[in-house]
């Protein structure tokens, strides 16, 4: 992978809580990362009006990762408001994109309604790649790899879906 892709996956793993091996498996015929990286880059540039913002996000991540910090420390530093509103919002939208396969638009609170979010799916493939289906220990609705009757017993452990180790 390129440095940019390495940083994209590394940052995505920290922010989503999923292992890099789940986001970008060694054998990756689906290869959703190749769709997400250019999409994310273009969207952040367009929405922030700052073509350098994505580079600065990845650079910040790379420098934090080089310091042997924990994922928790890196994530906290990336989402620090001191980085600027656009920087932090782009990182949060990155989380949403990985979990849903869609790009969010935040609707601020109004006199009649609280803040909410709408989103546009990026592609048919991205829908089925949403991590939300994995974090619920299930499958995308309409795209099950399970067999008859699986719903009658407990699913595999959450870590099997997130690729994380430990309890």
């Amino acid at each position: 992978m390129s440095d940019t892709m390495d940083n994209f996956i590394g940052l995505s793993a920290v922010l989503t809580g999923f292992a890099s091996s789940i986001l970008a498996p060694g054998l990756d015929p689906v290869n959703i990362k190749a769709e997400y990286l250019p999409f994310f880059t273009a969207k952040v540039a367009a929405e922030s009006g700052n073509p350098q913002l994505v580079d600065s996000i990845f650079a910040k991540y790379a420098s934090l990762a080089a310091q042997q910090l924990s994922d928790q420390q890196i994530g906290t530093a990336m989402l620090d408001p001191a980085n600027g509103a656009d920087f932090v919002l782009a990182c949060r939208k990155l989380i949403f994109m990985w979990y849903s396969g869609a790009w969010p638009t935040l609707i601020p609170a109004s006199a009649s309604a609280p803040a909410s979010t709408v989103s546009d799916l990026i592609s048919a493939k991205s829908y089925t790649c949403g991590l939300a289906w994995q974090v619920m220990q299930s499958h995308p609705m309409g795209d099950s790899n399970y067999r008859y009757g699986y719903w009658n017993s407990q699913p595999p452990a959450l870590n099997d879906y997130t690729g994380q180790q430990g309890a």
Binding site: R92, I95, F96, Y99, S100, A102, P104, L106, P114, A115, S116, T117, S119, G130, A132, W133, V135, M136, M141, W151
Partner: peptide, 25 residues
């Protein structure tokens, strides 16, 4: 229903947005 709050509240996406963006829909 076996589909959680999908019909009732458009989950998993609404709860996702709530905890990523700090909303409370």
């Amino acid at each position: 229903g076996n589909e959680g709050w999908q019909w009732a509240a458009n989950d998993p996406f609404t709860t996702l947005a709530d905890f990523v963006f700090g909303q409370d829909t």
